[in-house]
């Protein structure tokens, strides 16, 4: 950085107005921030000038964003939360799961990371308006939109009285992830992505595990090339701390999960998510 790094108090105050308006060059802005961090003198005028900024926004004519944007933001946030929870949720799922009769291998094909996937999707949205898109890009876009709609459905179900929400984190990095809501009467809505396509009679099966009780099947779904899937099933009434998990079964109607568990999470109201995030606060477990 330039020698502006060390601003005097007077120099910093001279830059107060452009600073609060975001009208400084990057090095100037950083110099002011550095001064504010280090200087113990009062900066009353700078605070006064900054206090007007929110009013400037009020002068704008209100414009509504596109309705689809909300789903995109919430889906990205859900994905972010799932990434944060990958390691602990895996450990919790392993502890809760009963012994498996015979393990099956997870499909080794991995889809792009959630971050790059959403960047691709976002970029695709802009490109669509400008140039023709190829079928692969369009397919990803469609699956992205489908996942956003599914996440919105989960959030709606999770907002009902007595319902709980679980973030399903992948057992392995790059594995399936998603979100599930369990209602007070046992209805379950689950939205998943990064799933390998099913073949033949294969299905993805959801499971509810309450305490030491045997896993309860929630229903199954198949997955195409898009890599997303949604489950609308029924299991056991929502109970804080219950585990919601996903396995891949050779056919529908499984009564015992075939390990490994591909993704799992702990259902909870606000406190449930709190616990997950708190447990994941370690920087090496977050993005």
């Amino acid at each position: 950085m330039s020698d502006r790094t060390r601003l005097t108090h007077e120099e910093a105050l001279e830059l107060a107005a452009p600073f609060v308006l975001n009208a400084l060059e990057p090095d100037e802005e950083e110099a002011v921030r550095e001064h504010l961090r280090a200087c113990s003198l009062p900066h009353e005028e700078l605070a006064e000038l900054g206090s007007v900024i929110p009013a400037l926004a009020e002068t704008l004519e209100p414009v509504e964003p596109p309705a689809a944007l909300k789903g995109r933001i919430l889906a990205a946030a859900a994905d972010d939360l799932a990434v944060r929870t990958v390691v602990p949720a895996t450990a919790a799922a392993s502890a809760a799961a009963p012994p498996a009769p015979e393990p099956i291998q997870i499909d080794s094909r991995r889809r792009p990371s959630p971050v790059s996937w959403f960047l691709v999707a976002a970029a695709g949205i802009a490109i669509v308006a400008l140039v023709a898109v190829n079928l692969l890009t369009l397919g990803r876009l469609n699956s992205s939109e489908q996942y956003e709609r599914d996440v919105a459905a989960v959030l709606e179900a999770g907002a009902q009285p007595g319902a709980l929400t679980a973030v399903l984190a992948p057992a392995e990095p790059g594995g399936p992830r998603g979100l599930a809501a369990v209602s007070s009467n046992g209805d379950v809505t689950m939205a998943m992505q990064d799933l390998a396509p099913t073949t033949g009679n294969e299905v993805y099966e959801g499971w509810a595990i309450v305490g030491d009780a045997a896993p309860v099947p929630l229903g199954g779904f198949t997955v195409g090339e898009g890599g997303t899937g949604r489950l609308d099933g029924t299991g056991v009434p929502a109970e804080p701390g219950m585990t919601v998990a996903l396995t891949r079964e050779p056919g529908s109607g499984a009564t015992t999960p075939t390990l490994p568990i591909l993704a799992a999470g702990t259902a909870g109201a606000p406190a449930g998510a709190t616990g997950l995030v708190a447990a994941l606060a370690s920087p090496d477990k977050t993005r």
Partner: peptide
């Protein structure tokens, strides 16, 4: 906006 975070905004 550190400035705006150190005093109640006018609005």
């Amino acid at each position: 906006t550190p400035a705006a975070l150190t005093a109640p905004d006018v609005w």
